[in-house]
């Protein structure tokens, strides 16, 4: 049986908003480590990996490892019924065909429970090898979201290049071209406003902007985003979820044949 209680229920609402447009159905894996998910989009170009560690919950009980298949659109509909300040409790059973979401208002004067039907999902799990990345860029998540949004009004793909000059985001389309360069900047008032570039060697990769834009839906979860790049490898776009874990997106590059 699984029973978890999350005081900061808004966090789970934000998690759903950041994955539901990328993946329709997914298996949530429950174990003593935490509540996790790995799922690919239908074209197998992007993958989302979520971990909410058990220590991050006020109460976490999972007697046995098991998976629960959920339609993320339906789960999002249910979680939208929780208030932003609500405490969310999730209950499920191994082999059960439903999951229960309980929403408690902070003053305990309103308690709601929603039962959602589970589904059997034949999902493909991918083994993600440990990789040494040529360049790791950490920047404000709002800045990255702004860049992706701006570039997608000009073109469909983004070339991300890291050199010792900084990180460059470029696109081109029918109306013209665009280049945005962000330099390392650590002289900021708050650490989360810094742009930090760790480069082992220069790297340049091409990606579909549509997916990058979808990843930026996770921006409300974290002030910063980390983009890890290696030649001929999928990019990793990571948003840390404070005290709890992370949401990582992997996106396969476009490569000249």
């Amino acid at each position: 049986m699984l029973e978890l209680r999350l005081v900061q229920g808004s966090l789970l609402k934000k998690v759903l908003e950041s994955i539901k447009d990328l993946v329709n159905d997914a298996n949530f894996d429950c174990s003593a480590t935490g509540f996790s998910l790995q799922a690919m989009d239908s074209s197998h170009v992007a993958l989302v990996s979520l971990l909410l560690r058990s220590e991050g919950f006020e109460h976490y009980r999972c007697d046995k490892n098991f998976s629960m298949g959920m339609n993320l659109g339906n789960m999002s509909k249910m979680l939208k019924c929780a208030g932003n300040d609500d405490i969310i409790t999730i209950k499920g059973d191994d082999g059960g065909d439903t999951i229960t979401f309980m929403f408690e208002s902070p003053s305990q004067d309103k308690i709601a429970d929603f039962e959602m039907k589970l589904m059997d999902i034949d999902s493909e799990h991918l083994g993600i090898p440990e990789a040494e990345y040529h360049a790791i860029v950490r920047m404000p998540s709002a800045e990255f979201a702004r860049i992706c949004k701006d570039l997608s009004s000009i073109g469909d793909t983004v070339i991300i290049s890291v050199t010792k000059e900084g990180v460059k985001f470029s696109t081109k389309g029918d109306i013209g071209t665009a280049n945005i360069v962000c330099r390392q900047n650590t002289t900021v008032d708050k650490p989360e406003e810094a742009t930090i570039i760790e480069m082992q060697e220069p790297v340049s990769l091409t990606f579909a902007l549509r997916y990058m834009n979808s990843f930026t839906k996770a921006s409300p979860l974290s002030n910063t985003v980390t983009i890890s790049l290696s030649s001929e490898l999928p990019v990793v776009v990571e948003y840390k979820i404070a005290e709890m874990g992370y949401i990582r997106y992997y996106l396969a590059p476009k490569i000249e044949d």
Partner: peptide, 14 residues
């Protein structure tokens, strides 16, 4: 134009 690869080109199934 470059071709969109899939994740199965890079990661191991299973």
């Amino acid at each position: 134009d470059p071709t969109q690869k899939t994740l199965t080109n890079f990661f191991i199934r299973g």
